[in-house]
Amino acid sequence: MSARTLVIASGNAGKIREFAGLLEHLPLTMKPQPEGMEVEETGLTFAENARIKARAVAAATGHWALADDSGLSVDALDGAPGVFSARYAESDPARIARLLQELGDTDNRSAYFSAALCIAAPDGSVLVEVEGRCDGVITTTPRGAEGFGYDPIFEVLGTGQTFAEMDRERKKSHGHRGRAFTLLEPQLHQLLAGS
């Protein structure tokens, strides 16, 4: 089976590294989306946004494209930041500061990360769609130096650790993206075998 090109529909270097690590054992040549390409996320759900990005990048590159839309939903904030997780503020530290400020000293700190993954073909067809979820709580202060985004303030249920305190393997097994990839992988294997 020769390697097929899969374009990662993201400009986020951390996300591209994480995807490459999750898929490194498959016969794929991974490339980032074209430099400077911006796809407007107009969906109301993580799944809709992933689909929009995958279709746009696949059409632009002529290759299969894998997109994700993921984010943090906090119960006490009526699900915010949700699909606006990346646009909640201008940087990771600012997003964390805003979230902690809005939560204040509320007792209900339950939250969950969702990751919707979509692989689309250049003709616009959706080849695979899956969604993974990870439950946890928002800490009162950031902990750990690994990861990116909200990782330092999201403690995974039952672990006593934030994502930023976990090594890559542990985060992969507990994380929303890792769970989504566990659902994606058998379907991607079938696609590769059939192409």
Rank of each mutant, 00 (worst) to 15 (best):
T61C: 05
E102Q: 15
I138S: 00
V126L: 07
V7S: 01
T140L: 10
Q190M: 10
K31V: 04
P34R: 14
D107E: 15
E129W: 00
A180K: 11
A76D: 07
V74L: 01
A50D: 04
L191R: 14
A65R: 02
T141I: 09
E131W: 01
G82K: 13
G132A: 09
A121P: 03
V39D: 06
L66A: 00
A67N: 06
T5Y: 05
S2R: 15
S125Y: 03
G147L: 08
E41A: 06
R177W: 10
L6W: 00
A13G: 09
L99I: 09
E146S: 14
A120N: 04
F163A: 08
G178S: 12
H176N: 10
L23D: 00
I8K: 00
A65I: 01
I96W: 03
N12V: 03
E146Y: 15
S70M: 03
S10V: 06
G124Q: 11
A121Y: 02
E18D: 13
T162S: 15
K172R: 15
G178M: 09
T139L: 11
G175F: 03
G71C: 07
A47F: 01
D69F: 03
E90K: 14
A86Y: 12
E90G: 12
T159S: 15
R133N: 06
V83A: 11
D69E: 02
I52C: 08
A58N: 02
Y150K: 05
V39L: 10
D78L: 12
R177D: 02
T106G: 13
D151A: 12
T141H: 12
A50V: 08
G158Q: 09
K15C: 06
L99G: 02
A80C: 05
G36M: 10
E169V: 11
G160L: 11
R4N: 05
D167P: 08
E155V: 04
A80P: 01
G175P: 03
A58I: 09
A94T: 08
D92I: 10
T45R: 12
A9H: 06
C118S: 11
Q190Y: 04
L127R: 05
A56D: 01
S2P: 14
G144K: 09
L183Q: 11
S173Q: 14
A60Q: 07
L183Y: 03
A164P: 11
R87C: 07
F154R: 03
R143P: 03
M1R: 14
A116I: 00
I138N: 01
E129A: 06
P34F: 07
A80I: 04
L72I: 09
A145E: 14
A54F: 09
M30P: 00
A47D: 05
L183H: 04
G71W: 05
A13C: 05
A164H: 06
A60M: 11
T141S: 13
D105S: 13
A164W: 03
A94I: 06
F181M: 12
T106N: 13
D123L: 07
E165W: 08
A59M: 06
G136T: 08
V74M: 08
C134T: 09
A9N: 10
R179C: 09
G79F: 12
V128M: 09
K171S: 06
L6A: 00
E131R: 12
T45L: 12
L188V: 02
S73R: 14
D69P: 06
P34S: 13
